[in-house]
């Protein structure tokens, strides 16, 4: 059972990195970004291509850079241009983006499944409780913990982080105080997209690459963000770890309804706390 809890922690960690980006973007732009799953997939493929040439870490870095640029352009051309319209309009645009990116990836890389190797340093397995456990999976937990700690430190210790928190609380008042909220929002969207890209590369060595990977994980990611409380980073972190456990334990203990369990969890949490686990912003 200890192994199963660890398995849940690995998947929860992956969801955490992905959902953190989604929560950040929602916090600033009040838009549920349906394109987030596609960013995750695009990041994985960009990282895969870069890793062919320079190895895993080059892939990770390349994916962060490419997706950050992508996020900045998206913010400038879509989110800012549509910020005075009904948020639903923007949501539909991001959904369209999901379809376009999926098709583009399929066109460039094909539907053939692809796989990426873990870095040599993390390729083996270690004995845990007398059983082999892949080192890379432990590294996933470490990478997610490191990224979350860095993100929280940045939000709570730096000046830019202060602006982000202020702008997500009240964009108008923050702008009146002389903060360029458009620039803050662009930074945050870029960061959110980069986190999605990075999580795609982190996932690549243990989940294979396919154009369907984004759509599949997006559903889990929405559950995380809704359970955690829209726009709340801490809530999303808690919800991601919870969902990881719920999924694994569901698959082991209640296999007949395993596919329903994430949604049952979401329904239960929303009945108990309609604004999610952390009902406040960032």
């Amino acid at each position: 059972m200890t192994i199963q809890i660890l398995n849940g922690l690995v998947y929860g960690s992956l969801l955490l990195v992905l959902a953190a980006g989604l929560a950040l973007i929602y916090g600033l732009r009040r838009v549920v970004n349906f394109g987030h799953g596609a960013f995750y997939m695009l990041g994985a493929y960009a990282g895969y291509t870069a890793a062919q040439a320079g190895g895993f870490w080059a892939g990770l870095a390349a994916s962060a850079v490419v997706l950050a640029l992508f996020g900045a352009v998206l913010d400038r051309l879509v989110f800012r241009a549509l910020q005075d319209r009904d948020p639903l309009v923007t949501v539909i645009v991001t959904f369209g983006l999901l379809l376009v990116i999926e098709d583009a990836v399929q066109w460039i890389w094909g539907t053939e499944g692809r796989s990426m190797d873990a870095p040599a340093l993390l390729a083996g397995s270690v004995a845990l409780g007398g059983d082999a456990f892949p080192v890379y999976r432990l590294a996933v937990i470490a990478m997610a913990a490191g990224l979350t700690a860095a993100l929280l430190a940045w939000l709570h210790r730096s000046r830019a982080g202060l602006f982000v928190r202020a702008a997500s609380l009240d964009p108008a008042i923050t702008a009146v105080q002389g903060v360029n909220t458009d620039a803050v929002a662009m930074l945050v969207t870029a960061l959110g997209a980069a986190l999605a890209g990075v999580s795609g590369v982190i996932a690549a060595p243990f989940l294979s690459l396919s154009p369907a990977m984004g759509g599949q994980i997006l559903v889990d990611c929405f559950v995380v963000v809704v359970v955690g409380g829209l726009g709340s980073l801490g809530g999303a972190a808690l919800a991601a770890l919870l969902l990881g456990q719920v999924q694994v334990l569901g698959a082991v203990l209640l296999p007949d309804i395993a596919a329903l369990i994430p949604f049952l969890t979401m329904a239960a949490v929303l009945l108990w706390r309609p604004t999610g686990l952390a009902g406040k912003r960032l």
Partner: peptide, 29 residues
């Protein structure tokens, strides 16, 4: 996506063989 919970169960049962009925992306994962 993540077969870890199933693989851990198979390992814990101390089997000698497994019949795998998966195809497409599932088989690769």
């Amino acid at each position: 996506r993540d077969y870890a919970p199933y693989i851990s169960q198979l390992k814990a049962t101390e089997l000698q063989g497994v019949w795998v009925v998966l195809s497409g992306g599932d088989a690769i994962n």
